[in-house]
Design a protein around this nucleic acid. Structure first.
Length: 474
RNA sequence: GUCGGGAUAACACAGCGGCUAUGUGCGGGACUGCAGAUCCUGAUACGGGGGUUCGAUCCCCUCUCCCGACUCCA
């Protein structure tokens, strides 16, 4: 079974074949760092984190690059308002970005290039585009891309030039030779205080060019996967393709993947709308992370296919929390069972192989994390039952746990192993458990409940059942 | 208007041409000193209308509605 990816370039599910066998180059559009990241960004970050994790799980050596746009109108405006340098402002939000994504359990990408630190590459690419005849310099020292000269216009977004013209929404600008053209280099404006020297005078990059330049610098002319939110398909990704292909003469990316938008229930007319800064309906990651742990947030996002729209609400997170608790309980119970269950060779191969095989089949089907998570719930029911009838052995439980950990390297929704592996502690706990058993046999419930309560206060939860008590760390 | 994506039980969200998914919630039952957990079980589905088929929720056509993009946007 091979990995199938829904490719937005062709709008088909295609078998994943890399340029170089065993290696994956992946570029994901990051954020403009002028404010804290919100849950919509979190979705994209977690989705591509999951994708990178799965590819790694499949044995690929992956290079994952995500950029920071730190040169941008909004940054300049906000920095001017605060009376600080634009790069000082963006630095602040880059730091916040890392703090916030850490709260989401995100594995770091290999590099996080910043536009401000890739000026050489950007200028070189602009120059190349002009040299190749796809760009022109205006009198004020800006450089524009000639859209009509590009081959394959609209290959990603299925747009035709005629449609663009008739839409009546293309911006007019006296510097442009054609309203469809877009800036790849913008001449400096004196009041902005944010520019770099270039062959065309002081200026700064256009919005799309940094990604093209960074991809070339870090990953090469043609990469395997290019990702981002589906709101970037047009014009951002379309223009990235035009620029890169005009400069390099080869396709930019083989697979284009886009995550669906996070939506928020509209206030007045109960329609859903996209969570975004401009609509003001966003929830900051740092605020949400105060109420919900990373496992819950990840579960919430991964419990839906990455490309589908997803409704945001605290009630959704609460439901995710309850659902995930079932998995966490099962995981904790298995850990307890692996300590105190019956001995035996514990043949659980069928369960393990079947679960792994179905889990992988789900993931291979365009990263269907939702279906993969269903396997975890099935496994929980199977093992809960096996623990209840004692058909599971402690060795079997250990093997199931190993499988769960293995699969969780992809999802990151199960609690991490405590560093502790303390036999003495286990022995003490087992004394307490036995003591309670005796007390309960003598119906001295006040004392047995007191032990249970005190242990709960100390962070350990005891659960009684017909065949003795189990304990786990809360 | 153009281009994408949707419409699945109370809610969320998968999936498949015939074997009724998963979680939450709700109704029974088991277990139980209590708490918690767990197991068994019940009910409520595939937007409307055509068509293809022995058979469609799944394929085709059409209608309605929703979301996103076309302006900064993950």
């Amino acid at each position: 079974m091979s990995l199938m990816i829904h490719n937005n370039l062709t709008n088909k599910k295609e078998e994943f074949v890399t340029v170089e066998p065993g290696k994956v180059s992946m570029y994901v559009c990051g954020v403009t760092v002028y404010d804290d990241i919100h849950m919509g960004h979190a979705r994209s970050i977690i989705v591509f984190d999951m994708i990178a994790r799965y590819l790694r799980y499949c044995g690929y050596e992956i290079k994952h690059i995500t950029n920071f746009t730190d040169v941008d109108d909004k940054i300049i405006i906000k920095a001017n308002k605060e009376g600080i340098e634009p790069l000082e402002l963006s630095k602040r939000y880059i730091d916040e970005y890392f703090k916030d994504t850490e709260k989401l359990g995100v594995n770091r990408a290999d590099e996080y290039p910043k536009a401000s630190e890739c000026m050489g590459n950007i200028i070189a690419m602009v120059k190349k585009i002009v040299d190749n005849g796809y760009g022109y310099v205006t009198p004020d020292g800006s450089v524009y891309f000639s859209v009509r000269k590009a081959k394959n216009y609209g290959q990603l977004s299925n747009r035709k030039i005629e449609d663009m013209e008739s839409s009546g929404r293309v911006a007019l600008d006296d510097q442009k030779q054609d309203p469809l053209d877009f800036a790849i280099w913008k001449a400096a404006k004196p009041e902005e205080n944010c520019s770099w020297p270039s062959p065309w005078g002081e200026g700064r990059p256009g919005w799309h060019i940094e990604c093209s330049a960074m991809i070339k610098r870090y990953l090469g002319d043609t990469i395997d996967i290019h990702g981002g939110g589906n709101d970037l398909i047009f014009p951002h990704h379309e223009n990235e393709i035009l620029q890169s292909e005009a400069a390099n003469g080869v396709p930019l990316a083989h697979y284009w993947m886009h995550n669906g938008m996070l939506q928020v229930k509209g206030v007045g007319n109960y329609k859903e709308e996209k969570m975004s800064k401009s609509l003001g309906n966003f929830f900051r990651v740092k605020d949400v992370a105060q109420k919900f742990d990373k496992y819950t947030i990840r579960f919430y996002f991964l419990n839906t296919h990455y490309s589908s729209p997803l409704l945001y609400g605290e009630d959704m997170l609460l439901e995710a929390q309850t659902a995930l608790k079932r998995l966490h309980n099962n995981y904790g119970d298995l850990q307890a069972y692996a300590r105190s269950g019956p001995d035996g060779d514990g043949d659980v191969c069928d369960i393990i192989d079947g679960t792994r095989q179905r889990f992988k089949a789900a993931m291979d089907d365009d990263f269907n994390t939702r279906a993969a998570i269903e396997e975890l719930f099935q496994l929980a029911r199977t093992t809960n039952k096996a623990m209840a009838d004692k058909t599971l052995t402690k060795q079997g439980a250990a093997k199931i746990l190993a499988l769960m950990k293995e699969l969780d390297t992809i999802l990151g929704i199960l609690p991490e192993e405590e560093a502790r592996n303390d036999d003495a502690f286990d022995a003490v706990m087992s004394i307490l458990v036995d003591l309670r058993k005796e007390l309960r046999a003598r119906k001295q419930y006040d004392l047995s409940d007191m032990i249970r309560d005190k242990l709960a206060e100390a962070g350990y939860k005891l659960e009684d059942s017909a065949d003795g008590a189990k304990w786990k760390k809360i």
